[in-house]
């Protein structure tokens, strides 16, 4: 192969090779599990810190508000405080044992299910695990 052909081939194969490498990179990215699907188990508090019926507010790894409610001796619920109706902040009413949204009187039971008002779907819940009085919550990883 003479120099002229070698240069011609170089000009043909560099862009082709770059295009091929780019498409391969996109494909690898596609089949690599995304961080948004990875759950992380994170310690939040000791059970004695939270009396029965008391609440504690947190933010999850993506900055969304959630609230922890101790609903029993060994029962803690973690719930998004964003009402599924129009996004107002719900709060725990311990007398009625339910979440209440002051904007349009939406009501949710302690598992987040709708019991009254306009909300179209249950509150978003987080999986809670209690191990030796340590309360852990499973958060979705930061978006990546």
């Amino acid at each position: 192969m003479d120099r002229r052909n070698a240069i011609k081939n170089l000009f043909a194969f560099i862009p082709l090779g770059a295009a091929f490498a780019g498409i391969t990179a996109l494909g690898l990215r596609f089949i690599t599990p995304s961080k948004r699907d990875i759950e992380r188990r994170i310690f939040t508090l000791h059970l004695p810190e939270l009396p029965i019926n008391a609440t504690r507010k947190f933010k999850d790894l993506r900055g969304k508000d959630l609230v922890l409610v101790r609903t029993g001796e060994h029962e803690v619920k973690a719930m998004s405080t964003v009402c599924t109706h129009l996004g107002c902040t719900v709060h725990w009413e311990k007398d009625r044992q339910e979440f209440y949204c002051p904007c349009h009187a939406g009501r949710f039971d302690k598992d987040g299910n709708v019991t009254g008002g306009p909300p179209p779907s249950p509150l978003e819940t987080y999986k809670v695990e209690i191990q030796d009085d340590n309360v852990f919550i499973y958060f979705k990883d930061v978006e990546g």
């Binding site: 996109l26 494909g27 990215r29 596609f30 995304s34 948004r36």
Partner: peptide, 9 residues
């Protein structure tokens, strides 16, 4: 809508 470049593939 969710997977990276899934729309492209």
């Amino acid at each position: 809508y969710t997977a990276d470049y899934g729309w492209l593939i």
